[in-house]
Nucleic acid binder design. Structure first.
Lengths: 242, 242
DNA sequence: CGCGGCCTTGAGAAATGTCAACTTACGTGG
DNA sequence: CCACGTAAGTTGACATTTCTCAAGGCCGCG
């Protein structure tokens, strides 16, 4: 089984010591893709690179929204807490993803690191000023927001009307496709988040996630490995998702 | 099924001499709020007023996205169809709402009229051209997209982690608040959509919606009327929603 | 080696779904 | 203006999926 996480780390190793966006390996995926060299330099001067260890909180629901972030390595879990310990994981931010698209004055969700995460942090005020001076950056941000909205709509359909089997299969497939854009296509899908994270994302329980994955494995659709699954039967797998 | 497109075009002709944007009652709520008088005139020249009778389709999932719309009167239901007759209602567009924020080349959802609907239709190409010339319009559209995203995230939490009682109560409250912005605050909440629409929006069945509303009425939290409910106990009602 | 976190599995419970009957509201045509 | 037909809404009885609670297994780490 190939280790996607390692791959991503390698991609970013160059970034860790190179302060400039120009060397960033996820640039073409991130907000930054909209900018030319001089603009990139400008954005660069606003960015602060941050390392976040596993499980550490990046930002907290209800706090004043002082910064926005672009993920350059690792996986971030984004969630809302409800009464009685209920939690909804809205999604997972992967390298290239932007955190802070759906912004008001206060954060509407909590974000914390699943594994070791590397971020570019932007002061919100500064970022918004840059935004007002760079229409192409605004346009890029808008198209990212639009994309997020499309994904959110798919997720609503999943949460509202899909069976547990469909939910789990669709989640695995969507993670496969997202990793493919970052690190290339692979039948092995890294799942660095816990079963509880997945459950809270899919609106089911940890036990149901576990049983469903076991069931998919018994049907020889996947192999269940540590922090990953391998898709064996593309075809039948895709059928579950329609 | 009849050819909706033809019918809509006919209706459009018959209402082409509708009043200018300046007289529009929902202008301050809609995209148009970002524009000054001369810009408004420009937008006006792109807009075609359209009347849509109840149940008629405005746009269809999978079709080429040729136009975007601003709702000026009535209620639009926006949904995705899944296999086996399952449906997820993503939301209801009220006067002032924009249809086509989450846009790719093809529509990602179907939209049709709940009651009698009036729209401003914009050719997508023309609208996008205007957008590239009017940064404030883009900025306004982006903030509307951001707002949609926040709402979508709340809806995910609702669909993923809320009980049927909470879902129904939250829906009624959200409709109350949305109508308040359009027509002023009132304890009576108009619900022009059917129980099936509500059920498919909340990820439950029509029977569960019905039972839950009956239950809320028995508890004297609401009065259940035709196409509306009246909220009797703000306090206890709000408590269910936290 | 043993501890703790995470995952899996099983058995019974609960919420919601399904199916079916019945009521109500409403518009049409006699 | 009434009678009828249809669509929408309500209610009840029973089915099913998923949840809850509980026990045990696996694995990395001190």
């Amino acid at each position: 089984m190939t280790d996607c996480k390692t791959q991503v780390d390698e991609l970013n190793r160059s970034t860790s010591n190179a302060p400039f966006c120009e060397a960033c390996k996820v640039r073409s995926l991130a907000v930054c893709a909209a900018l030319d060299r001089s603009e990139l330099r400008e954005l660069d001067s606003l960015a602060r690179r941050i390392d976040v260890p596993p499980k550490k909180t990046i930002l907290h629901e209800g706090d004043e929204a002082a910064a926005v972030y672009s993920v350059t390595a690792g996986v971030v879990r984004i969630y809302k807490l409800l009464s009685q310990g209920r939690r909804q994981v809205l999604g997972f931010a992967l390298p290239g993803d932007f955190i802070g698209l759906a912004l008001r004055n206060r954060y509407g969700f909590t974000a914390d690191a699943v594994d070791h995460v590397r971020l570019c942090r932007f002061d919100r005020r500064e970022f918004e000023q840059l935004l007002s001076r760079k229409p192409r950056l605004l346009s890029r941000l808008h198209s990212m927001a639009t994309h997020e909205l499309v994904i959110a709509q798919d997720q609503m359909a999943l949460l509202g009307r899909r069976t547990a089997d469909e939910r789990v299969a669709m989640f695995i497939l969507s993670m496969r496709d997202r990793w493919a854009k970052i690190a290339g296509k692979s039948a092995t899908v890294e799942l660095p988040m816990t079963r509880l994270d997945i459950a809270d994302h899919l609106g089911i329980t940890i036990e149901t996630v576990s049983r469903t994955i076991t069931k998919l494995a018994r049907q020889r659709l996947i192999i269940n490995g540590p922090n990953a699954v391998r898709i064996l039967d593309e075809q039948r797998f895709a059928e579950i998702c329609r």
